[in-house]
Simulated scan of single mutants.
Amino acid sequence: MTFFLREREGSLIEQMDRPDCELRRLRRSYARFPVINFLLARWGRNYEQRIRPLLAGSTATTLLDIGCGGGDVVRRLARRAARDGFRLAATGADPDPRAHDFATSRKASDGVRYRRALSSELVAEGGRYDVVISNHVLHHLSPAELAAVLSDSERLARHLVLHNDLRRSRIAFLLFMVAFWPLGPGSYIHTDGLASIRRSYTPAELRDIVPPGWQVERNGPWHILLVYRPPGAGSA
Rank of each mutant, 00 (worst) to 15 (best):
A148V: 00
L206E: 04
N46G: 10
G234A: 15
L5W: 05
A89Q: 15
D20P: 04
H100G: 12
R207L: 09
A56I: 00
L194E: 08
L138H: 01
S109N: 04
D72E: 15
G232R: 08
Q49S: 10
P212W: 00
C68E: 11
I171T: 13
L162N: 04
G67F: 05
A90F: 06
D165G: 04
F38A: 15
R52H: 05
T61W: 01
L5H: 07
L183Y: 06
A60M: 07
R158Q: 13
F4D: 05
F102C: 10
P211Y: 09
N46S: 12
D192C: 02
C68D: 14
G186K: 03
R158G: 05
P97D: 03
S58V: 03
V123C: 03
N37I: 04
V35Q: 12
T2E: 13
M177S: 14
V74K: 11
T61R: 05
P53R: 07
L64C: 10
E125L: 11
L138G: 00
R80S: 09
E48M: 04
C21L: 02
I171A: 11
G69R: 11
N135M: 11
R158F: 03
Y228T: 11
L5F: 08
H159A: 15
M177G: 12
C21E: 04
I66D: 06
S187F: 06
G234Y: 01
R229K: 09
C68Q: 08
E217H: 04
V227Y: 07
V149L: 06
H140C: 05
I36G: 07
R113Q: 13
H100V: 09
R155A: 14
G69V: 09
G111N: 11
D101P: 00
I197C: 08
R168H: 11
P221R: 07
K107H: 11
A204C: 00
R128V: 10
Y47I: 02
F38S: 12
I36S: 07
P53N: 12
F86S: 08
P95E: 07
S169H: 06
N46D: 14
S120P: 03
R42H: 13
A103N: 07
K107T: 13
L63P: 03
L160E: 12
N46Q: 14
R87G: 03
L55E: 09
L23G: 00
H100C: 08
V216K: 05
I189F: 00
A89L: 14
S169Y: 06
S109V: 05
P221F: 08
R50A: 14
G193E: 08
F173E: 05
V161E: 05
T61Q: 07
Y114L: 02
R28H: 10
D165N: 03
G85I: 09
A117Y: 02
R106H: 02
L23A: 14
R218W: 04
R50H: 15
I133S: 06
L166I: 15
T104W: 08
D130I: 02
R80Y: 15
G111F: 06
G126E: 01
R170Q: 11
N37P: 10
V112W: 06
Q215I: 00
Y201N: 01
F4Y: 14
I66Q: 02
G111Y: 10
A147Y: 00
T59V: 14
F102E: 12
N219I: 01
H159P: 00
G220S: 07
V131Q: 01
L118A: 04
R25M: 13
N219V: 03
R25S: 09
Y129K: 03
M177A: 15
G70R: 06
E205R: 10
R76F: 15
